[in-house]
């Protein structure tokens, strides 16, 4: 059955806005991973390029880049952009 829609003007709710509750932290994207990057700290020159480019923020800086595998999707942007090829990757079988 069809009905007549009646809305009153409500500026508080009538604007398409919603609170963002750090949802990226809840979504453990590490399970998506097919390729696993690993940093070879002997080669690493600490240029911070991988740290800056990681789209998920899965690489944190603790004096050196550290990958958090709970969130790393394995997109390999870090490995692709490493100037000294210090990030190796291999296929992860799950």
């Amino acid at each position: 059955m069809s009905k007549v829609l009646k809305y009153s003007y409500d500026f508080e709710k009538g604007v398409p806005v919603m609170p963002a509750n750090a949802s990226a932290r809840k979504n453990k994207t590490g399970t998506w991973r097919i390729w696993k990057p690993e940093i070879n700290y002997d080669k690493c020159v600490k240029c911070k390029i991988c740290f800056t480019l990681c789209p998920h923020g899965a690489i944190s800086w603790k004096g050196k880049p550290v990958i958090d595998y709970t969130f790393c999707k394995g997109c390999l942007i870090c490995a692709d952009n490493c100037p000294v090829k210090a990030i190796n990757f291999e296929r992860e079988v799950k």
Binding site: P16, V17, M18, P19, A20, N21
Partner: peptide
Amino acid sequence: KPLVQGPAV
């Protein structure tokens, strides 16, 4: 105070 504006509906 994180906020999404114009989210997917």
